[in-house]
Measured scan of single mutants.
Amino acid sequence: SLNIVTVTLNMERHHFLGISIVGQSNDRGDGGIYIGSIMKGGAVAADGRIEPGDMLLQVNDVNFENMSNDDAVRVLREIVSQTGPISLTVAKC
């Protein structure tokens, strides 16, 4: 069973999320979106629970499971540009 973790980040303390995301597209185009790298000083690094290779399932109320990489990057950028905490739900691989 997948270990699902939801992390809520206070964006007032850390001014950027600090992750890159990578799409693992397979033949069907539904390989999922994964955490690529984590930048020091960002909210994700400070929290420490999300790691490279984790699968990104949801951000706030947006489901990322069947999203293309381009869409995921765009949607994540829109969410980060808003104010307030950000909740990331990942599956630990």
Rank of each mutant, 00 (worst) to 15 (best):
S1C: 07
S1W: 02
S1D: 11
S1I: 11
L2G: 10
L2I: 12
L2S: 12
L2Q: 12
L2Y: 15
N3A: 02
N3L: 02
N3Q: 02
I4D: 02
I4Q: 04
I4H: 03
I4T: 07
V5D: 08
V5K: 13
V5P: 01
V5C: 09
T6K: 08
T6F: 07
T6R: 11
V7P: 01
V7I: 14
V7S: 04
V7D: 00
V7Q: 01
T8Y: 10
T8K: 07
L9W: 02
L9V: 07
L9N: 00
M11V: 13
M11W: 05
M11N: 08
M11G: 03
M11S: 08
M11P: 09
M11H: 06
E12K: 11
E12F: 07
E12Y: 11
E12M: 11
E12A: 10
E12N: 12
R13V: 06
R13K: 14
R13D: 14
R13M: 07
H14R: 02
H15Y: 01
L17G: 01
L17M: 05
L17N: 02
L17P: 04
L17R: 01
G18C: 00
G18H: 00
G18A: 00
G18M: 00
I21F: 10
I21M: 13
V22G: 13
V22L: 08
V22F: 11
V22N: 15
G23M: 03
G23H: 10
G23I: 02
G23Y: 07
G23D: 14
G23Q: 10
N26Y: 15
N26D: 15
D27N: 11
D27G: 15
G29R: 14
G29P: 13
G29D: 15
G29A: 10
D30K: 11
D30P: 08
G31C: 04
G31W: 14
G31K: 15
G31F: 14
G31R: 15
G31S: 10
G32L: 08
G32W: 07
G32Q: 12
G32P: 07
I33N: 11
S37Y: 11
M39I: 13
G42C: 08
D54I: 02
D54N: 06
M55S: 08
M55G: 05
M55P: 01
L56C: 00
L56P: 01
L56G: 02
L56H: 00
L56N: 00
L56M: 07
L57W: 05
L57E: 02
L57D: 00
L57T: 09
L57R: 08
L57C: 11
Q58C: 13
Q58M: 12
Q58K: 14
Q58A: 12
V59F: 02
V59H: 00
V59Y: 02
V59T: 02
V59N: 02
V59I: 10
V59D: 00
N60I: 01
N60A: 04
N60K: 06
N60M: 01
D61S: 09
D61P: 01
D61T: 08
D61W: 01
V62Q: 09
V62K: 11
N63D: 10
N63G: 12
F64C: 12
F64M: 13
F64Q: 00
F64W: 01
F64R: 01
E65N: 11
E65Y: 03
E65W: 01
N66V: 06
N66G: 08
N66M: 09
N66D: 10
M67D: 01
M67K: 11
M67I: 06
M67T: 08
M67W: 05
M67V: 08
S68C: 08
S68V: 13
S68I: 11
S68G: 08
N69Q: 13
N69A: 12
D70F: 04
D70G: 08
D70I: 03
D70L: 04
D70M: 03
D70N: 11
D70S: 07
D71G: 05
D71S: 06
A72M: 02
A72P: 05
A72W: 00
A72E: 01
A72S: 05
V73A: 14
V73C: 14
V73K: 13
R74Q: 14
V75Y: 11
L76R: 03
L76W: 12
R77G: 11
R77S: 11
R77V: 01
R77W: 05
R77I: 02
E78W: 02
E78M: 03
E78S: 09
E78A: 04
E78Y: 04
I79N: 03
I79K: 04
I79C: 07
I79Q: 04
I79L: 12
V80C: 15
S81D: 09
Q82E: 14
Q82S: 09
Q82W: 03
Q82R: 11
T83H: 10
T83N: 10
T83C: 13
T83L: 12
T83Y: 05
T83S: 09
G84A: 07
G84M: 09
P85Y: 05
I86K: 11
I86D: 01
I86Q: 08
S87V: 07
S87A: 11
L88D: 08
L88N: 03
L88R: 00
L88Y: 02
L88I: 07
T89W: 03
T89S: 12
T89V: 10
T89L: 10
V90I: 15
V90A: 02
V90P: 00
A91T: 06
A91H: 15
A91Q: 06
K92Q: 07
C93M: 12
C93T: 15
C93V: 03
C93E: 15
C93P: 04
